[in-house]
C-alpha cells in the first residue's frame, strides 16, 4: 500500500484531505478502507529503534571517520524532528491491510494506485495502461480502473500523455472541484494549484465536463490544441482562450518557458514548486517582463539565482520568504 494511505491510517489526527475527499466521493469504499485500517493498526513487524543518543553518536562516528577527507565541522541534526513519524511507522499490518484492500479491489475488478510529489520534486510515472503522467511539485495522483474507464484524481499539477487503448477506453481526469477532463489519447496539462483550475491542451482533443451545483453553469465543451480553459473554483465561472501551449506544458520536460513572463509569474512558480514566497518591496517591479526559456533546476537556491539574473534583480532569502530588490 502506498505511503500516503499508510500515513493517513497511522495519523488519523492529521487531516489528509486527499483521502478524506476521495472517501467522501466514494462512500461505497468506506468499509474496505476501514477493514484495511483495522488490520494496519493491529499487526506490525517487531520494533527495533535507535535512541536519539544512538543516532547522534552514529552520525558523529560517520563524520569522525571522514575527518581526514573532510576537516570541517559536521552539520548537526535535530533529534526530535522526525521522531514521531518513525515511532508510528512500525508496521507490517500494511501488508495485510494492503493485501485485503487489494483483494477487495481485485474482486471488484479494480486497481487503485497512487503517487505523490513533495515540494521541489517532480516525477514522471507510467500508468499500467502505458500512459505517462508527469507530476509537478507538491501534487497527488490517484489512479483507478473500473469497468471500462480509466480514472485519475488529481490534486496539484500534472502533464498527461494518455495512451489510446485498443478498446478505446475512456480516460477521465477528476479534479476536486466540479471539473472533469475526458479524453481518449492526447497530451494536456491540468493545474489545480491556484484559485483557478487551468487546463491546456497540447495535442489531440479533450472534453471538459463542468458540473456546477447550479445548473446554469454546468457545461461540456471541447478544447482544441493550443486552447486553454480557466475555471474559477470559487464561483464556477470559466473562460476559454488560445495560448502558446508550450508556456504551460514545458515544465514537464524540465524547461521554464517565459513569454512576457513577469515577476508575478516567477513568484507563482517559486511558490508552487518550492513553497517559497516572493516578496517585492516595490510593486511596480511586478510589471517587468522577460521572454525566453531556461532549464528548471530542482534546487530553490540555484533557481532563484537564475531568476535573479534573468530579471536583473537581487533575490535575498529569509527562511521561506524571498525579498526582491532592484540591483
Amino acid at each position: 500500500m502506498d505511503e500516503d494511505f499508510q500515513d493517513w491510517v497511522l495519523h488519523p489526527g492529521q487531516q489528509n484531505l486527499f483521502w478524506e475527499t476521495w472517501l467522501q466521493q466514494h462512500p461505497e469504499k468506506e468499509s474496505i478502507v476501514n477493514d484495511a485500517r483495522q488490520l494496519v493498526q493491529g499487526i506490525r513487524f517487531r520494533a527495533f529503534s535507535l535512541t536519539a543518543a544512538d543516532k547522534e553518536q552514529l552520525w558523529e562516528a560517520v563524520w569522525n571517520g571522514l575527518e581526514e577527507t573532510a576537516p570541517t565541522a559536521p552539520v548537526t541534526i535535530s533529534r526530535w524532528k522526525h521522531a514521531w513519524k518513525y515511532a508510528a511507522v512500525l508496521l507490517l499490518g500494511i501488508a495485510l491491510g494492503a493485501a485485503w484492500w487489494g483483494i477487495q479491489a481485485a474482486r471488484r475488478g479494480q486497481t487503485i494506485l497512487s503517487t505523490y510529489t513533495r515540494l521541489g520534486e517532480t516525477k514522471a510515472v507510467q500508468l499500467p495502461d502505458g500512459s505517462i503522467v508527469t507530476l509537478n511539485a507538491d501534487s497527488r495522483l490517484l489512479y483507478a480502473v473500473s469497468g471500462n474507464a480509466r480514472e485519475v484524481w488529481l490534486d496539484g499539477e500534472a502533464f498527461f500523455q494518455v495512451k489510446h487503448t485498443a478498446n478505446a477506453q475512456q480516460f477521465v481526469v477528476h479534479t476536486y472541484d466540479n471539473l472533469n477532463v475526458e479524453v481518449l489519447g492526447t497530451q494536456f496539462n491540468v493545474n489545480s494549484k491556484g484559485k483557478n483550475i487551468v487546463v491546456v491542451l497540447q495535442q489531440g482533443s479533450i472534453l471538459l465536463n463542468i458540473t456546477a451545483p447550479r445548473q446554469e453553469k454546468a457545461a461540456a465543451l471541447y478544447l482544441r490544441p493550443g486552447e486553454m480553459l480557466t475555471y474559477n473554483r470559487t464561483d464556477g465561472d470559466y473562460s476559454k482562450r488560445s495560448v502558446a501551449a508550450d508556456t504551460y506544458t514545458s515544465w514537464h520536460t524540465g524547461r521554464l518557458t517565459m513569454d512576457d513572463y513577469t515577476l508575478h509569474d516567477a513568484a507563482a512558480f517559486m511558490q508552487q514548486v518550492f513553497g517559497k514566497k516572493l516578496i517585492v518591496s516595490d510593486t511596480t517591479l511586478y510589471n517587468d517582463k522577460v521572454s525566453g526559456s531556461m532549464p528548471i533546476i530542482y534546487n530553490p537556491d540555484t533557481m532563484m539565482t537564475q531568476l535573479g539574473k534573468v530579471f536583473r534583480m537581487q533575490f535575498n532569502q529569509r527562511g521561506d520568504e524571498v525579498w526582491i530588490h532592484k540591483k
Binding site: 487489494g102 486497481t111 521541489g120 520534486e121 517532480t122 514522471a124 500508468l127 528548471i296 534546487n299
Partner: peptide
C-alpha cells in the same frame, strides 16, 4: 494481491533537489 500491485505505477523519471 500480486496482480493488484503488479501493474503498479512505474516511476520513469524524477527530479528531486
Amino acid at each position: 494481491t500480486g496482480k493488484a500491485h503488479k501493474s503498479g505505477l512505474r516511476v520513469v523519471a524524477s527530479h528531486s533537489s
